[in-house]
C-alpha cells in the first residue's frame, strides 16, 4: 500500500474494531434497525399505501440520522482529547488529514453496514410486489451519501470540544440547519432581506432536496458532487479545528 493509504487504513481498522469492542456498534445497529422499521411500517404506513416501493422507508432516514449520526460522531475526537490518546495518535508518523480521514471512513463504513442490515425491508417489498430495484438501489446510495454529510459535520463538531454532550448538541443543530435549509422555516429568516441569489444558494444547501432527487431514482452528478463537497469541506474544517485546538 502507498505511504498515504496505509496509515489511513490502519486508523480505519483500529476505529472499526473499537466500535465492536464497545457497546457502541451494537446499540447503534439495533436502534437504527428498530427505528427504521418502526417508522416504515407504522408512521410510513408501508402496508396501507399498497405501493411496492421503499419511499416510506427512505423518507425517515434524514430524521433518524439527525440524532443517531451525531450520537455516533460525538465521541470521535472528544474522546481522544479527554483520554489524551490524541497526543499518542498525532505523534505517530500519521498526518492530521490521514487521521481525520481514517476516523471518518471507519464511521461511514459502519453506518453503511447498518444500512445494509436493513435488507429485510428490501426482501419484504420484493416478496409483496414488484418494485423498481434500481430506484431502491439509488435510495440506498443517496441515504449513505447523506449519512456521510451528517457524519462529516459530527466529526468536526466533535473536534471543537472535549465535552461529548456539547459536541452532540452542536452537531444536531448544524445538521438540522443543513437538513431544513430549503424549507420555509429557514427561508423565512432570510427572505425579507437577502438577495435572491443568496436565497437560492441557501436553498441549494438542503440535504433534503438533494436526497429526495437521488431517492426518486435520479442519480444526478450535481447531487453526488454536492454530498462529496459537503464531506470534504467539513473534514477540512475538522482538520483545521484540530490543528488549532489540539492542545486544549
Amino acid at each position: 500500500m502507498s505511504n498515504f493509504t496505509s496509515p489511513v487504513s490502519n486508523v480505519l481498522r483500529r476505529e472499526l474494531a473499537g466500535y465492536f469492542a464497545t457497546p457502541v456498534a451494537w446499540v447503534f445497529i439495533v436502534i437504527f434497525l428498530v427505528m427504521a422499521a418502526a417508522f416504515t411500517f407504522y408512521i410510513g404506513a408501508f402496508y396501507d399505501r399498497g405501493i411496492a416501493d421503499l419511499d416510506p422507508f427512505f423518507t425517515f432516514h434524514p430524521w433518524l440520522y439527525l440524532f443517531l449520526v451525531p450520537a455516533m460522531a460525538m465521541r470521535l475526537w472528544a474522546e481522544e482529547r479527554r483520554s489524551g490518546t490524541i497526543e499518542l495518535l498525532l505523534t505517530l508518523p500519521v498526518t492530521l488529514w490521514q487521521a481525520v480521514l481514517g476516523k471518518f471512513l471507519a464511521a461511514w463504513l459502519f453506518v453503511g453496514l447498518a444500512l445494509l442490515l436493513t435488507f429485510p425491508v428490501w426482501l419484504t417489498v420484493n416478496y409483496l410486489g414488484d418494485p423498481d430495484n434500481g430506484v431502491i438501489a439509488a435510495g440506498y446510495i443517496g441515504s449513505w451519501l447523506m449519512a456521510g454529510g451528517f457524519l462529516a459535520i459530527g466529526c468536526c463538531m466533535s473536534a471543537v470540544t472535549r465535552n461529548q454532550v456539547v459536541a452532540f448538541i452542536l452537531s444536531v443543530v448544524v445538521c438540522f440547519g443543513f437538513l431544513v435549509s430549503g424549507l420555509p422555516m429557514v427561508m423565512d429568516l432570510f427572505s425579507s432581506w437577502a438577495p435572491q441569489p443568496l436565497l437560492d444558494a441557501i436553498a441549494e444547501f438542503s440535504f433534503l432536496a438533494h436526497f429526495s432527487t437521488i431517492s426518486r431514482g435520479v442519480i444526478d452528478l450535481r447531487d453526488l458532487v454536492y454530498f462529496a463537497l459537503v464531506m470534504v469541506v467539513w473534514l477540512l474544517a475538522n482538520t483545521m479545528v484540530l490543528e488549532m485546538k489540539k492542545a486544549d
Binding site: 496505509s6 490502519n10 483500529r14 474494531a17 473499537g18 469492542a21 483520554s83 489524551g84 499518542l88
Partner: peptide, 24 residues
C-alpha cells in the same frame, strides 16, 4: 505522553500491533 494514554477498549496485543503498523 504524560499519564501513558492508550485506547482502553483495545487488548494489549491489538494496541501494540496498531502502533507497530503506524510505525511502518
Amino acid at each position: 505522553p504524560e499519564g501513558a494514554p492508550s485506547y482502553g477498549e483495545m487488548t494489549v496485543r491489538a494496541f501494540l500491533e496498531f502502533v507497530a503498523r503506524a510505525r511502518g
